[in-house]
């Protein structure tokens, strides 16, 4: 039972990381109906930038904040310079998928060219302390990551529901043409959406890097978990991304105890994606979100 609880809590921690990346995917999907396959690699790239700052003596917190700013700028640039070029009415989302896959390969190759292939270790934002609760050890890091996720969710809620920016993001997601007609600068708003997505991606990148070695492949498996989280929760639902992320995290942690899945953690996740797509393609929370808009 204690082991079960322990695993559950570990699952929460990794799930919060997946949820964070999935939130980025959902923001882009909601505002533009696209999936950014380079989301993870962009996060990996900004995490390297944060690592460089830490290596030069900056505090982890400052470096992570800087990485988030880098991420925002990177997201805006990618949208403006590349994605926006494919926004004509006759363009297929397929072309943009291929462009984001090109970005995937680009960043994945650029990182070892700049920083080498050797793994780097990235310090932990919340230290290595832990709290003991009746036999279950909770790392301070776990509490920190879950706390950051909760803060993210609250901030997103406030932004989407109570700011002008959030309103315009929702307007563009709902109807791009009408938004343009009422005078919204659709291009800039989409770019901001990509920026925010890359920003939360950068944050999740530093979290992942504090758990495993920072290499060019840091985010590949994590991206799949985030995809699974978004698919399970519904690609257009931020709530779904969070719930989906937590579920995927717990499933991943528990699955390690099944022989078949030991060292093969992607298999249950892959099967889960397939089943969700076949049985309920809109995900757990997808439909409600659609009707809301």
């Amino acid at each position: 039972m204690e082991l079960f609880l322990q695993r559950l809590i570990d699952g929460l921690a990794v799930g919060a990381i997946y949820a964070s990346l999935a939130l980025g995917l959902v923001i882009i999907y909601r505002s533009s109906g696209l999936i950014n396959f380079a989301q993870g690699e962009m996060a990996m790239f900004t995490t390297y930038l944060a690592w460089m700052l830490v290596d030069n003596g900056l505090s982890v917190w400052l470096a992570t904040s800087a990485a988030m700013v880098f991420g925002f700028v990177l997201g805006v640039l990618v949208e403006r310079l590349l994605i926006a070029q494919f926004s004509g009415p006759k363009e297929s989302p397929l072309a943009i998928v291929i462009v984001t896959i090109g970005l995937f390969l680009f960043f994945n190759g650029l990182a070892p060219w700049i920083w080498g292939t050797e793994g780097k270790s990235f310090p932990n934002l919340f230290g290595t302390g832990s709290v003991d609760l009746g036999g279950v050890t909770i790392k301070v890091q776990t509490l920190g990551i879950v706390g950051v996720l909760l803060a993210e969710v609250v901030l997103f809620y406030l932004m989407f529901q109570h700011t002008k920016l959030g309103l315009s993001l929702r307007a563009v997601a709902s109807n791009r043409e009408s938004s343009r007609l009422v005078g919204l600068r659709v291009g800039s708003i989409l770019a901001v959406g990509w920026g925010i997505a890359a920003m939360v991606g950068a944050l999740s990148g530093t979290f992942v890097a504090s758990r495993i070695d920072l290499t060019q492949n840091l985010m590949q498996v994590v991206l799949i978990y985030a995809f699974a989280a978004a698919t399970l929760g519904g690609f257009d639902s931020p709530v779904g991304a969070v719930v989906g992320g937590i579920i995927i995290g717990v499933v991943e942690q528990m699955a390690q105890y099944v022989d078949l899945f030991d060292g093969f953690t992607l298999l249950p996740v892959f099967l889960l994606i397939l089943v969700v797509l076949l049985v309920r393609p809109q995900g757990l929370f997808g439909r409600a979100e659609v009707s809301r808009v």
Binding site: Q220, G263, L266, L267, F270, L277
Partner: peptide
Amino acid sequence: LPALRIRGLYLGVVTLALALLFRQA
């Protein structure tokens, strides 16, 4: 098979997962 139920980009998600899954296998 997901193509039976859905359109669009999800096949990209499934196949990307497959590529990494194969490596793990």
